[in-house]
Nucleic acid binder design. Structure first.
Lengths: 329, 329
DNA sequence: CTACGTGACGCAAACGGTTGCCGCAAGGAA
DNA sequence: TTCCTTGCGGCAACCGTTTGCGTCACGTAG
């Protein structure tokens, strides 16, 4: 089969241990031997067997990532960031898409456990009590989810939401809608609270719709509900829903912008390409992913007992053309 | 630390080998013993250490996936399909995003080699000679790329492209543009040839632009070139480019549809949400991903010497509203 | 000249399972 | 009763690396 340490040991006349050290712990062997070993290993096309390496050393050079739905455009940037950061630190990413199906998570996480150096979990839907079980599988870090006693990178929606409501009131809107995300979504709870507070603070009426799944089709469905109501502006749980909403409104001849203002959340790459371009609350997914990797690797190196890190990231409003001054009815 | 086979052996008074068999090779032990072992294992919270398991058995329950860019919306559906199919067969996916940077591929693949049961490679840009090296790392299957002597799932663009050109000529277009993808892209070569043949067959003029990167910004840049030319319809290398193109044309007051027809390729979820909705050639990415997993696992089970499978998938045109009858100028 | 320190390397025991082979006991056939 | 078969379970080797510890030779100091 493939070249092993023993093969090189034979070829060099050294022992496997010396070869091992020559390759991975350079200071412990004579420089001349080291170079000779390395050259021969190179020539023989030696590639260390990571599996065997993990077994003894405990290190895996792998980090596990659990996401609810790869196809939702909010996640690819996170995945990419995790992947890039991991790669920069010599790690590969083991990924599990749990298909918005929370019960798989713990199962998947357990299986991954021994295989990875750390876990990054993006898990907006799993109930809290489940998460506690997950949290035991340290090192672990949660993205966009606060779990007591566990490290996390959370995205603080309130600032962006405040800006959004402020923006709408400045445009004269006095009655705005919020399209709720999935019922058990932690993010939705955050966003819902944020929009309620912001509306209360600005003294505007809030009408809530939903819950909706974070999918385009749900937005399409939402459109007719919104149109039948008397709100003049809508904030959607995410860009997916907002895009579906806009598409359906366009179809029905309602001009997004002039007739009704729409704000999405996530600022996914598509928001700039929609028609009209979608005003959206930027959520720093990439940054969150990168930070998560840093934290989890840090945790892996130094399994401290200290209170785990909780990083907060801010959101902000990106104004495009889906929001306009309110139209007299 | 965690519960091992030996712990269970001790608890049951059996040997580790029996426990192992009771857990993973049920027929070889007495049903009563098996159930007892399983119950105790369950109670003790035993989770097999996959790493140790791989080392002896050679099986990893992992499949490796190499993609050029997770953030390009063409890939998530593929990844999702690979992931889903793998999951259905009890495997997890090890993913590597090579960031459109081909030289990493072989390196990454080599490192993955021993850790996975098979490799699925989506590699539109890597030069052929590099790919040959990769192909040795069997079991391996290439998606959307033909490599001699290796299994692959290829997507045959010609039919969809023929339909696209036919569609445009039926609408009266006589001079159409093609926006080339990246210079060294295998897919682009396929698509370029297909569009040339189709245009020749229908006797319409073809004007080529590019190459362009498969990114929205490239499409934006393309828009002005296209607008300055005299083509009445454009087929873009992919939806990303098409979306950027449309966005910029909208911005310049050119009505996509009435003024100029645009066709994308990939039929990504966004095409139905763009304005106007984008006529696009559907590329069965999900199916390709699923098939690739089937093939690679099949290869892993029965490493035959036979000529490896090459599966062909067809494309077809999805007509939406970005294509209209040619306007008199 | 002896003794001791030190650098360079080898030995062997892990790591946690899997698996080929063997022994043993019980059951059936002769 | 004896012999053979069959089912069940144990023994031990093995997968490829890492790593603590021991050994050996050499250099230097006393």
């Amino acid at each position: 089969m493939s070249v092993t340490l023993a093969d090189i040991a034979r070829a060099t006349g050294l022992s496997a241990s010396t070869v091992s050290r020559a390759l991975s712990d350079p200071d412990k062997v004579n420089p001349r031997t080291r170079d000779r070993v390395r050259k021969i290993a190179q020539d023989m096309g030696y590639v260390p067997n990571q599996v065997a390496r993990s077994l003894t050393s405990g290190r895996n050079d792998l980090i596990g990532l659990i996401v609810p739905d790869i196809a939702n455009p909010f996640f690819p940037p996170i995945i990419k960031a995790v992947q890039a950061r991991a790669s920069a630190k010599g790690k590969t990413v083991l990924i599990a898409d749990v298909d918005e199906h929370p019960s798989d998570e713990i199962q998947r996480a357990r299986v991954m456990r021994k295989r990875v150096d750390g876990l990054v979990v993006v898990s907006p839907r799993t109930p809290d009590d489940r998460l506690d079980q997950l949290a035991e599988l340290r090192p672990i870090v949660f993205v966009n989810r606060e779990v007591k006693g566990a490290a996390s990178v959370i995205i603080e929606d309130s600032e962006g939401m405040r800006e959004a409501v402020e923006h709408l009131t400045a445009l004269g809107h006095r009655r705005i809608g919020y399209l709720n995300g999935p019922r058990r979504s932690w993010s939705n709870t955050q966003r819902q609270n944020a929009v309620r507070e912001a509306c209360a603070a600005h003294g505007v009426d809030l009408v809530e719709f939903g819950p909706f799944e974070p999918q385009i089709q749900a937005g399409v469905r939402a459109a007719d509900l919104v149109h039948a109501s008397d709100v003049t502006a809508v904030i959607a749980y995410d860009d997916m829903i907002a895009l579906g909403l806009m598409a359906r409104l366009n179809e029905r001849g309602v001009r997004v912008g002039p007739d009704i203002s729409v704000i999405g959340i996530d600022d996914s790459p598509m928001s700039g390409m929609a028609y009209p371009t979608l005003t959206s609350i930027h959520v720093p997914g990439s940054e969150a992913g990168a930070r998560a990797v840093d934290i989890v690797l840090d945790l892996a190196d130094t399994p401290s007992e200290a209170e785990p890190a909780v990083v907060q990231l801010e959101t902000r409003l990106i104004v495009r053309s889906s929001t306009s001054p309110v139209r007299e009815r």
